[in-house]
């Protein structure tokens, strides 16, 4: 598949946004449970939510560049019953709205206790909004991932690992960002957040490497033989029927030499996992804001590369019909 930058940015930005929100809410939960020193001010949540919103909005804006007719984008919510894309289109704004309310509640200090759990824990509005937001964030991970994972013949994508990856990679980048952010805004939580970021990055690495290993062993189920219905071991396309290219030769081919694809793979393994792990290990315990910021930036760049590779490595069976175009 051809990696389209609007989609690369969409998925990486909202992934980081979702992760960041999950981090914010986790901090709040842990603080509530006393496992963590509560952030000194609500600004942590307020500015954090703004950051989440910025990331989600950035992704949303990027996604418009993917559309041929962005002015009709609103129509995309119509088919939520069948289309994961439609669901994503619904969940993303819902998440954004929730985050907005979550941030606003923190800003306004509007935290009326709604009810009290039997354990005596008072559940206030931010907790409810946070829980809702977290569920939406997970749902969004699921939707985004399922857009890819639900296509059975794109076998590189069609796997539960895709859902795991989107969730873990988004989570990892969000927590790394949260660590960097807290180093500025709530240094007291930084150590913990960085620890979680480290763990998530590690998990993401495991899941992503597992995917690489799985995909390396995939044998295409569609072959020239099944594509044409001709049983002969040697089938070569001699003409695709046109020579100047077409939608089908552009959309489904990354057009890069194999060398570049593997270089990108090495790059993302380094940038999305190895480097951030090292930087998190280095800067996390000390709460070193520049180091953690660097960790996020490096990881984000790595994830863009990862997403590029995610598309590039996916071999669409339609390409069997469009091998020979020059």
């Amino acid at each position: 598949m051809r990696p389209d930058y609007s989609v690369l940015l969409l998925t990486t930005l909202i992934g980081a946004g979702q992760g960041l929100f999950l981090a914010l809410f986790t901090v709040q939960l842990f603080a509530l449970a006393g496992q963590l020193p509560a952030p000194g001010s609500h600004a942590f949540y307020v500015h954090g939510s703004l950051l989440v919103l910025a990331l989600l909005a950035g992704g949303l804006v990027a996604s418009f560049f993917h559309l041929g007719r962005p002015e009709r984008a609103w129509r995309a919510a119509a088919m939520w019953r069948t289309s994961w894309l439609s669901r994503e289109v619904i969940v993303l704004p819902a998440l954004m709205g929730t985050v907005l309310l979550f941030g606003a509640a923190h800003l306004a200090g509007f935290r009326p206790t709604l009810f009290t759990l039997p354990s005596g824990l008072a559940i206030d509005s931010t907790l409810v909004l946070g829980t809702l937001g977290a569920m939406l964030a997970f749902a969004l991970f699921l939707c985004t991932a399922m857009i890819y994972a639900c296509l059975p013949f794109l076998r590189e994508w069609s796997s539960p690992l895709t859902v795991a990856n989107f969730t873990l990679l988004g989570g990892a980048s969000g927590f790394t960002l949260a660590a960097a952010f807290s180093a500025w805004a709530a240094p007291e939580a930084t150590r913990y957040i960085a620890g979680w970021a480290f763990a998530l990055t590690l998990l993401a690495a495991v899941s992503r490497v597992a995917t690489l290993l799985r995909n390396a062993r995939l044998r295409p189920r569609s072959t020239p033989q099944t594509a044409l219905g001709i049983k002969h071991p040697r089938i070569v396309q001699r003409s695709a029927g046109f020579l100047g290219g077409s939608f089908n030769t552009r959309e489904f081919f990354h057009g890069s030499p194999e060398r570049r694809v593997s270089a990108v793979r090495s790059a993302f393994l380094l940038l999305a996992f190895a480097a951030p792990l090292a930087l998190l290990a280095l800067g996390g315990p000390r709460g070193a804001a520049p180091v953690l910021t660097a960790a996020f930036l490096v990881q984000f760049a790595g994830l863009v590369a990862e997403r590029w590779h995610f598309f590039a490595q996916a071999r669409h069976p339609q390409n069997l019909y469009y091998q020979d175009t020059r």
Partner: peptide, 27 residues
């Protein structure tokens, strides 16, 4: 009139049977 040109359907077609119109930007 409804298509937003997201190309998702073309990804979902294993046969490469869909083409985005380069001017109207619809499938």
């Amino acid at each position: 009139d409804k298509c937003i040109g997201c190309k998702y359907c073309s990804w979902a077609c294993p046969y490469g049977a869909r083409e985005l119109d380069p001017v109207r930007k619809v499938m």
